[in-house]
Write a protein that binds this DNA or RNA. Structure first.
Length: 668
RNA sequence: GGCGAGAUAGCUCAGCUGGCUAGAGCACACGGUUCAUACCCGUGGUGUCGGGGGUUCAAGUCCCUUUCUCGCUACCA
């Protein structure tokens, strides 16, 4: 066994249990798994944690829709997620759920502790909340009794809330980030965090909610539940036995701080700002590294359930096999940019890398060993040493070159993995396999076989091939564990264990004992696929998905408090006709429209530039709130508001009268 | 609008602190080979290195400028 290099604690983000994860979500666990496996191979004492994030309003609503309790709902989804993680052969050590009793208990205690020490405070600004700005103001901050930001009325707070004093720790965090350049990966993300959040000054974070109940209740104020990020992020410490009262487990002492939090790039902010600050408040050391990986996107249009083109891991595994899917997602994901997945790309990788380069190599090597030596692989020592050079001066000592490539690969893979460049690491391994294929052409075993006198040379060639493949197969273990086993099972049929090598010796050549046999019945590792067949199957899957999703996914909308007809009556809505529309300078999302409302024409700014071109708006009749206090946006005064509907998938449309009616008509 | 990244072969991308005829993989074409899953090996391309200017003996590689793309962020009355 390699020497123990010490503990290594790696986590994925915990998956939100609102539904079955698609292949893009599944990518993260595979990436984490390959890193975890690789570190284990290197000799680290790895602890790999993943799990599910199970609280929040969205889940509360989904459960209601399904007619079951939230707990039943998350039990189902969590089980399904775990099943997929297992299907992908991921070697996590712990699967935590935020509904686990010990987790909930610690979160309550953490909240209390932070409250007691003054980091969390209950909003004392009751009555002066500006809803659109999502900000509380003190009496003294108001300008003319109005919100100093937008100048609108501040209202009595709808809900009291607890806040976390982020600003208190901001300087320490900035210092930490500056002193640990490797903390945020890739580094481009570090700049975004510094420039957009830390340098301008951190806002306090709201850490409780009262608008729903599916969450961890605040012990001492049970109408509040703990805001999901404080709940979710702490899984990284509660999962390994952290206890606020100082009774943390030995495991915690050993593993914390984590070596790597692997997360999607969308939640970098929570992991590199709020999480470190929570930890500082708890007086715990910060994780060593946070890697915000890019996304695996579907190439052919946006994934959507109604289109039925969502790609799920289990469908892919059915069609291609686990390791092929692992290979694909790891290979297609560069370090910084988003990767793309399509059925065509999947087939291409499968055929060219897995079937042609690797599968065929193993197959032809075994076939020749059987054909020429009855499967016995002997090291004879008849090498190509001293073969000289060809007419172009190129070395004919093919053995030496093959060995050099094979033995150098381990170090190359290690180097790539050190910086988490998993795709590049795999490429190095496939370079090894390609070198083996080339070696066959160089040495031409079929030609050697025709000459009795060359029998020992032929044996040596085949030995070298089997040995080279053995090394490559062992290097592949972190990424495609089943393939490693499948190859070794064929090269060492009597006892595959004899083909397994410690990572430390993967830079050595010639460890295979001479005289062992390879299998008499080679099996194809990866079958070539026809793109037509695959596309046909993909269509079947899409059709099934569409059918299964006859039900519609409704948007989740945070509930507002009940109002009376008098409240409603305060709002004046009228039909407006868009006369003219143009983009607002200095703004990306804004359009300014000239709208006829009765006998007056108003300028109204709307955040719809991403959905409507200015010329599309002209001539439309829309619903307009006409008694809204005017307000300047990006330097342009807006005298009202165009009503529009938006769903959860980024669609938006303005609201128009169903029949033609004259501009100025009141909507009531 | 602010901050940042990028624009290199048909496609996806490498090209560090400037230096010999600009690379890899895939795709494509031609040649070789037959052990093998019609597979493997070799050879090949015209790349205005986004446009324009500049520094230098020498610039994808540095500076300025311009166009476009992308990320984060603000505005979304």
């Amino acid at each position: 066994m390699p020497e123990n290099k010490g503990p290594y604690y790696i986590t994925t983000a915990i998956a939100y249990t609102s539904g079955k994860p698609h292949i893009g979500n599944t990518y993260e666990i595979v990436l984490a798994d390959s890193i975890a496996r690789f570190r284990r191979q290197e000799g680290y004492d790895v602890f790999f944690q993943t799990g599910t994030d199970e609280h929040g309003q969205k889940i509360e609503l989904k459960a209601e829709e399904a007619g079951i309790t939230p707990k039943e709902f998350v039990d189902n989804v969590s089980t399904e997620i775990k099943k997929i993680w297992d299907l992908m052969d991921t070697s996590y050590d712990k699967f935590i759920r935020t509904t686990d009793e010990d987790h909930e208990k610690q979160v309550k205690k953490i909240f209390k502790k932070l409250y007691d020490q003054g980091d969390i405070y209950k909003s004392s600004y009751e009555g002066l909340y500006c809803t659109p700005c999502e900000s509380f103001w003190t009496e003294s901050q108001l300008v003319d009794g109005k919100c100093p930001d937008c100048g609108r009325e501040v209202k009595p707070a709808k809900e009291e809330a607890y806040f976390f004093k982020m600003s208190k720790y901001a300087d320490r965090l900035i210092q930490y980030i500056e002193e640990h350049p490797e903390f945020i990966q890739p580094v481009s993300r570090k700049n975004e965090m510094m420039n957009n959040f830390l340098k301008p000054g951190l806002q306090d974070l709201c850490v409780s909610r009262t608008s729903f109940t599916w969450g961890i209740p605040v012990d001492f104020d049970p109408k509040h539940v703990v805001y999901v990020w404080l709940d979710a992020l702490t899984n990284y410490i509660t999962g390994i036995g952290y206890d606020v009262d100082g009774n943390s487990t030995e495991q915690f002492a050993k593993l914390w701080p984590a070596d790597l939090h692997l997360i999607g790039k969308d939640i970098i902010r929570f992991h590199t700002i709020y999480w470190p600050i929570f930890l500082m408040a708890l007086d715990l050391p910060l994780p060593k590294q946070v890697f915000g990986h890019p996304w695996l996107l579907q190439g052919d249009g946006k994934m959507s359930k109604s289109k039925g083109n969502v790609i799920y891991a289990d469908d892919l595994v059915d069609m291609f096999g686990v390791d092929a899917v692992r290979y694909f997602v790891l290979h297609e994901m560069p370090f910084e940019n988003d990767g793309v997945i399509t059925w065509e790309l999947l087939v291409e990788r499968m055929n060219s890398d897995l079937a042609n380069t690797l599968g065929n190599l193993v197959n032809r090597t075994i076939a020749m060993s059987n054909k020429y030596f009855g499967g016995v692989v002997k090291k004879t020592g008849v090498t190509s040493e001293g073969a000289g050079v060809d007419e172009n001066g190129a070395s004919l000592d093919f053995d030496a070159d093959l060995k050099a490539v094979v033995t150098a690969t381990k170090e190359k893979v290690k180097t790539k993995m050190k910086t988490l460049h998993v795709a590049d690491a795999m490429t190095e391994i496939f370079t090894l396999f390609k070198r083996c294929n080339k070696y066959i052409d160089e040495t031409m075993p079929w030609a050697l076989a025709k000459d009795e006198a060359q029998a020992d040379r032929l044996a040596e060639v085949l030995y070298n091939l089997v040995e080279g493949i053995t090394v490559g197969a062992n290097l592949l273990k972190a990424f495609m564990p089943n393939t490693t086993d499948a190859i070794l099972a064929q090269l060492y049929p009597e006892n595959p264990k004899r083909g397994e090598r410690d990572f430390d010796v993967l830079d050595q050549f010639g460890l295979r004992e001479s005289g062992m046999k390879v299998t008499e019945t080679p099996e194809i590792l990866f079958a070539r696929l026809d793109i037509k067949d695959v596309l046909a199957k993909a269509e079947e899957i899409q059709a099934a998905q569409k059918a299964a999703n006859g039900g519609v996914e409704y948007p989740v909308v945070e509930k507002k408090p009940e109002i009376t007809i008098d409240d409603f009556d305060k709002i004046q809505i009228q039909v407006g006709e868009v006369l003219k529309c143009e983009p607002v300078k200095k703004a990306k999302k804004l359009l300014v429209s000239q709208i006829r409302v009765g006998d007056e024409v108003r300028h109204i700014v709307s955040g719809i530039a991403a959905y409507y071109k200015p010329e599309e708006m002209v001539g439309k009749k829309v619903a307009v709130i006409t008694n809204l206090k005017p307000c300047k946006l990006c330097g342009v005064e807006s005298q009202g508001m165009i009503l529009a509907a938006a769903d959860d998938n980024g669609n938006l449309c303005v609201v128009s009268p169903e029949k033609d009616i004259i501009a100025g008509s009141e909507i009531c």
